[in-house]
């Protein structure tokens, strides 16, 4: 491509983004845009799939049959959402196998929050309410992302996911209105999941390597800090309503800003977990690799069966 041609295409691309048009798979796009949207979608897809593990841990121990059915349905949704996102990402020419391999090699990330353990049943409440709550704030915003297949996947996911946060909040609500022991369980889960949930939105805007570019491309529609503030403003009254206390002494309503102020996030912890040193990093990856290896014989058998029939039909045709 000549330099002139490249410049013309760049201008066309910029104009589409400026006009709120979506970028579609066969459009020309700058290499950096392709790389960034692929990184973001693959991270998002891996998160959906790895996110099944902390909750899967509680299926057999759900306190009632109803809770068990709800948890199963939710986890099943997450698997489906992983599929939507992998296939949206595949429109960029990278296969799911390549993406999964990159994760297994530690080259591709998933949301760091899933490296925390789910210790009690109340964690199922906190995860639904806070982790899914934070994810939804992000995903609602991403319904308007500039990459067409990503935007369409987000619209589908948001529609299906609407019950995830509510079922979590309801678990918390029931526990918070229960015995002193149950209430303590709910408070303990909130204490452990609150800060990691705030970290889910990523580093502050001033520290985020990708934010400026992603905002310019309209891949991200709101910055990490804007989304985080939105989440805090929603969650604080919800905690108050069920009588739980946010584990943040600096949390207070700021009349001038019209938002809640909140305390300092422990970014050392964030980076420690991202770089592999959380409580469950090794376990999550090992489990994913094992599940893939354990399932290999099914895929091999399906392939062998198809091959057998192909050979047979070629023979009978001959």
């Amino acid at each position: 491509m000549t330099e002139q041609e490249l410049e013309r295409r760049q201008q066309e691309f910029d104009a589409k983004v400026a006009n709120e048009e979506r970028i579609e798979p066969k459009d020309w796009m700058p290499d950096d845009y392709r790389k960034t949207v692929l990184r973001q979608m693959s991270q998002h897809a891996h998160s959906e799939v790895i996110g099944m593990q902390p909750e899967g841990n509680w299926i057999t121990r759900a306190p009632t049959l109803s809770r068990k059915a709800i948890l199963l349905a939710k986890i099943q949704d997450e698997g489906g959402h992983g599929l939507y996102l992998y296939s949206a990402a595949e429109t960029l020419g990278t296969s799911r196998e390549q993406m999964v391999e990159a994760m297994h090699l530690g080259k591709a990330k998933y949301a760091s929050i899933f490296n925390y353990p789910a210790l009690t049943w109340a964690d199922m409440g906190a995860i639904g309410w806070l982790v899914d709550g934070a994810a939804i704030v992000n995903q609602v915003s991403l319904q308007r992302t500039s990459y067409g297949p990503y935007s369409r996947a987000m619209i589908r996911i948001c529609k299906e996911e609407s019950f995830h946060q509510r079922q979590g909040y309801q678990i918390m609500l029931v526990l918070a209105r229960g015995s002193a022991e149950q209430k303590a369980l709910a408070q303990d889960a909130l204490d452990r999941w609150w800060w990691p949930s705030l970290m889910m939105f990523g580093p502050h805007d001033t520290e985020s390597a990708h934010t400026a570019k992603s905002m310019q491309w309209k891949l991200k529609r709101e910055s990490n800090d804007q989304l985080r503030q939105k989440f805090v403003d929603q969650a604080v009254p919800q905690a108050e309503y069920i009588g739980l206390k946010m584990p943040d002494p600096d949390l207070r309503w700021n009349e001038d800003r019209g938002h809640y102020d909140f305390g300092k996030i422990d970014w050392d912890e964030f980076w420690r977990v991202v770089s592999g040193d959380g409580a469950c990093n090794r376990q999550r990856l090992a489990h994913h690799i094992k599940a893939q290896e354990d399932g290999a014989w099914v895929r091999d058998a399906m392939h062998a069966y198809k091959e057998k029939h192909r050979v047979r039909s070629t023979r009978s045709a001959a």
């Binding site: 109803s66 059915a69 709800i70 349905a73 949704d77 709550g133 609407s162 019950f163 946060q165 509510r166 079922q167 909040y169 309801q170 929603q234 009254p237 919800q238 309503y241």
Partner: peptide, 19 residues
Amino acid sequence: DKPYRHATHYDLPDEVKSM
């Protein structure tokens, strides 16, 4: 027969509407 897959299944108090 699985109404719990929909958000409307969960009764939420008015105070926490934005969910």
